[in-house]
Computed example of a mutant assay.
Amino acid sequence: MGTIMTGPKQEPKKRSTRLLLPASGYLTGYSYTLNPYVGCVFGCSYCYVRRMPLALFRGEPWGEWVEAKAFQEADFRREWRRALHKGAVTVFMSSATDPYQPLEYKQQVTRKLLEIMVEEPPEFLLVQTRSPLVIRDQDLLRQLGSRVRVSVTIETDLESIRRSLTPAAPPLAARWRTIRELRKLGVPVQAAVSPLLPYSGEFAQRLSEAVDRVVVDDFFRGDGSGGKRSAQLKMEARYGELGVEGLYTPQTADQFVEQLTALMPEGAVYFGHAGFMP
């Protein structure tokens, strides 16, 4: 009897996961959060996600792994339309990862999500990132117009501090360039000084010249737990190692906000929750 040829074995199709999750806690004010990836290879020392079950029970150090969420275009389009049918949709992307992980170069999950959003736009979308890769999607961001805001994290103007506390994150020069290019393209953008790290005396002036909207946050009011997660991450000790322990107080951010407010137009400077809202 001859051999029956069945062809190559087919892997079972990976089911999509739900991507739009109801916003809560610090992000109350949005309809949904959307995280295209699980994990984050930027691995910032202060990241509050380090103290969440997602990171604590993974078995691998936070900052050393990232995975694209299971995504099927047709499934997300249905999920998106269901959300739109319920009413005005406001989305924070992303709350527990950066939507522009290096893996996004290959996977393009974030870009595919934006393509679907452009077809049927939300009321508002905030894209929170520290990656220059966001420039790649300027065509889609421009189509969303005033319905989108790109929030670029730039916590300090000192590269030495960036290397000490966020060594795997994109260099500051690349982030300043990203802000300039987005503004030139007409894409709404803000600088997210979140959390404020040790900085030079020129930082406030430079921000006031680079953007027309800034949000500042700190370790005490911006980690989603009233500073408890930051304490667990021993951020005060990290400041001590850098010889700047005197800056680890809520007053540091308050004074910085005062400096910015004196330099920028009314309504351009925000602190904490309000600066991330639609």
Rank of each mutant, 00 (worst) to 15 (best):
R130L: 06
D223H: 02
V109S: 04
M117G: 12
S24N: 08
R130H: 04
Q205H: 13
R15F: 04
R221W: 04
R180F: 01
E258P: 00
Q10D: 04
M52E: 14
A68P: 15
P278T: 07
D75M: 02
S24I: 03
T178R: 12
V150L: 12
V189R: 07
S208F: 02
P132L: 04
G226Y: 03
L20K: 06
L144N: 07
A96L: 10
C40S: 12
L196K: 08
E241Y: 05
R162P: 13
Q138W: 05
D217T: 10
V211S: 09
K9W: 01
Q107F: 01
Q101E: 14
L158M: 15
G275F: 01
R238S: 03
G246E: 15
W62I: 10
K112G: 04
Y199M: 13
F124Y: 15
M277P: 01
S45G: 12
E258R: 15
E73I: 07
V269G: 08
F256A: 11
I4N: 02
H85L: 13
F219G: 07
A204K: 08
V193E: 10
V134M: 09
A268Q: 03
L56P: 07
T166V: 05
V109P: 10
L126G: 05
A231C: 00
L144C: 11
E64W: 13
S160C: 06
H85M: 11
T3V: 12
L125V: 05
K228Y: 01
T252W: 13
G275W: 08
A96N: 12
L197T: 11
R213G: 00
D254L: 14
G43L: 06
L141R: 09
W65I: 02
V215E: 08
H273L: 03
L56T: 08
S160R: 15
Q107L: 08
A192V: 11
L197D: 10
F219H: 09
F42T: 05
G2T: 03
A253G: 10
P188R: 06
T261M: 14
M52I: 07
L247D: 08
M1T: 04
L27R: 06
E67N: 12
R213M: 10
R149V: 11
W176I: 06
I161K: 05
S94Y: 01
S194F: 08
I161P: 12
Q255A: 14
L172E: 03
S225E: 07
G39Y: 04
V215I: 06
P99M: 09
S151H: 01
R213I: 00
S208Y: 03
M93G: 08
R15W: 00
A274K: 14
G7M: 14
F256E: 12
T110C: 08
E202L: 14
I154M: 15
F71L: 12
Y32K: 05
V38C: 00
P122Q: 14
A74M: 02
M277E: 05
